[in-house]
């Protein structure tokens, strides 16, 4: 690991200015991903700008009934927040299904969104990887790729995004708040991440030096429960092989609100728009769910060793949809 400078600004604006003055810098939040990547030599910043103590550590009510989650709220505190547990259960469940208690105590909202892929080739400087070193090739495509993408991948990169939290946020129509010396803007979480295409080195649409200041959750619709389910290689403390977050509201037996996002399948949380479109206004029956989920997964392009993800994702989605749908009245 090379040496680096260290700055601890007092405000968001000072943090953005510090980046402008040190273009090779990285923001340090909980450090659970960045410090790991420093040790591996994947990240080699000139300077770390510590944002871990910025006053972005609260969850606030918004006037429109939504919630604003500050960028440095720790994952464990967010999962335990009574408002999140009551109104956005999929978010609390997704956070609690990720990492370990120690890691969640350190990890922040902003850092979780921007964590890098767990592709082992990305983490190994001796291996080719277009995401780490553009143009060097993709070691995983013909190598070990059991954990990799089945949707939206490119010849250049087949990595998945590892966050559980982001999958719930995508299904919940949350927005990311961004700040830079040039101004502020907001992006839906579902559109914040890129597909790898020819530029897998860019995970998201964030601009260099832009800071995530928080995440906004829209008001939860009454009677629209949500849930998250994750499949992994062991019962706890493992990344998702596949996961799903679902928001579902049914009126008079008909679906009138639905948001579905898959995790572990793609370079970004995968909003199942085909499924959603097919379900809106359709009867909330197991058969309708099955047909609608199949429409989305028909787009999957599994690799040599990860075709198992397609039925796994299907079963997870059907389980959660059927669980959230109130049982039909007995005939």
């Amino acid at each position: 690991m090379n040496g680096f400078g260290y700055l601890r600004p007092d405000s968001v604006h000072e943090a953005a200015e510090a980046y402008a003055a040190h273009p090779g810098a990285r923001f340090l939040a909980g450090g659970t991903n960045l410090v790991d990547l420093l040790k591996l030599g994947v990240e080699r910043p000139s300077t770390l700008i510590d944002i871990g103590r910025l006053p972005l550590d609260s969850v606030q009510e918004l006037s429109d009934g939504g919630l604003r989650v500050g960028a440095t709220v720790r994952n464990s505190d967010l999962a335990a927040d009574p408002r999140v547990r009551d109104r956005y259960p999929a978010l609390s469940q997704a956070l609690l299904a990720g990492a370990s208690a120690q890691l969640r105590n350190a990890a922040t909202t902003g850092g979780n969104l921007l964590q890098r892929t767990r592709c082992p080739y990305f983490q190994d400087l001796d291996k080719p990887c277009n995401k780490r070193e553009p143009g060097s090739g993709c070691g995983a495509r013909d190598g070990v790729h059991r954990d990799h993408a089945v949707l939206g991948h490119s010849p250049q990169c087949i990595a998945t995004h590892p966050s559980d939290m982001a999958v719930a946020l995508a299904a919940l129509d949350a927005q990311v708040e961004l700040y830079s010396t040039a101004g502020t803007r907001r992006l839906p979480v579902a559109d914040f991440y890129r597909l790898p295409g020819e530029h897998p080195e860019r995970d998201t649409w964030i601009r260099p030096g832009e800071l995530i200041t928080g995440v906004r959750l829209p008001a939860a619709t009454a009677g629209a429960p949500s849930a998250y389910r994750k499949a992994r290689d062991r019962a706890s403390y493992a990344f998702a092989l596949a996961s799903v977050a679902v928001v579902l509201r049914i009126q008079d037996g008909v679906v009138d609100q639905v948001g579905i996002a898959f995790g572990g399948l793609a370079h970004r949380p995968w909003r199942a728009r085909h499924t959603e479109l097919a379900l809106l206004g359709a009867p909330a029956t197991p058969a309708a769910f099955e047909g609608a989920v199949a429409l989305e997964l028909a787009h999957a392009e599994p690799l040599r060793d990860n075709a198992y993800k397609v039925p796994l994702a299907r079963n997870l989605a059907l389980d959660v949809l059927n669980r959230l749908a109130p049982a039909p009245a007995p005939a």
């Binding site: 659970t32 410090v35 120690q102």
Partner: peptide, 13 residues
């Protein structure tokens, strides 16, 4: 008072 992994914490922070 909170449990953390000390291998991932930079002392300076």
């Amino acid at each position: 008072g909170r449990r953390l992994n000390s291998c991932l914490l930079l002392a300076v922070a």
